[in-house]
């Protein structure tokens, strides 16, 4: 009898221990970080590089003669930035960030870019050709504003690696070109060096 009681007690303890063991958290811990903080996980193109390049280019363009001397904010369109590095970089994220910073300044106006053009055309067609919209409110064809300038550029990199050290040099280059004359009105570049060592 006493032995049976003891067995029951030990069994209960084992079940309890198992239950507690299974209920304890075993997944990865998750926490929010500073989205503007310096990120140095590895030498790959990262959030700090994206933010630094966008800020640097936007401020440099705001400080250029084209923007300073214009009475009206100049109209600019954005072309894709070519990725000449060996790694995958979403360059549209860089141009989008530059554009949002420049738009926020109120000193530059942007027209739809080549990648956004299809949506613009589709919307104009929908309003003008579907016959669903009243004549008073529909947007009319042929009134789009042409951009006087276009922004285009590239990002390149030089990577050197030994057993213990990896050195990556990024070079981001951006130009503002006059669409009518073809003159390069402004140019700037931002260089970033990242070194990882064991």
């Amino acid at each position: 009898m006493l032995t049976f009681k003891r067995v029951c007690f030990i069994s209960t303890l084992c079940v309890l221990a198992l239950t507690v063991g299974c209920a304890s958290p075993s997944g990865p811990s998750v926490r929010y970080g500073d989205s503007k903080g310096v990120e140095t996980v590895n030498t790959d193109f990262g959030s700090t590089d994206l933010q630094t390049i966008a800020e640097s280019m936007a401020r440099s363009l705001l400080d250029s003669r084209v923007v300073i001397d214009s009475r009206e904010p100049p109209r600019v369109t954005v072309y894709d930035v070519k990725n000449k590095t060996s790694e995958y970089i979403d360059t549209s994220a860089i141009t989008a960030k530059i554009r949002s910073q420049l738009t926020r300044s109120g000193r530059v106006r942007f027209t739809v870019s080549t990648s956004e053009m299809q949506n613009q055309v589709d919307e104009l067609k929908r309003q003008n050709q579907s016959g669903l919209y009243s004549a008073q409110t529909q947007t009319r064809m042929g009134n789009m504003n042409g951009a006087k300038y276009r922004v285009e550029g590239f990002i390149g990199s030089i990577v050197k690696q030994t057993k213990d050290v990896k050195d990556v040099f990024y070079n981001f280059h951006l130009s503002l070109i006059n669409n009518e004359t073809g003159d390069i009105e402004w140019e700037d570049e931002k260089e970033i060096r990242k070194t990882a060592s064991r």
């Binding site: 500073d34 503007k36 903080g37 310096v38 959030s47 700090t48 933010q51 630094t52 800020e55 936007a58 401020r59 705001l62 400080d63 910073q101 926020r104 300044s105 109120g106």
Partner: peptide
Amino acid sequence: VYGDEAWKPLPVGSGQSGVLFGIAPGP
């Protein structure tokens, strides 16, 4: 105004001097 800028690594190396430069995003 204009929210927080991104933190940028100091462009000046250890034992060196240099200039930090910034332009406000708006007026």
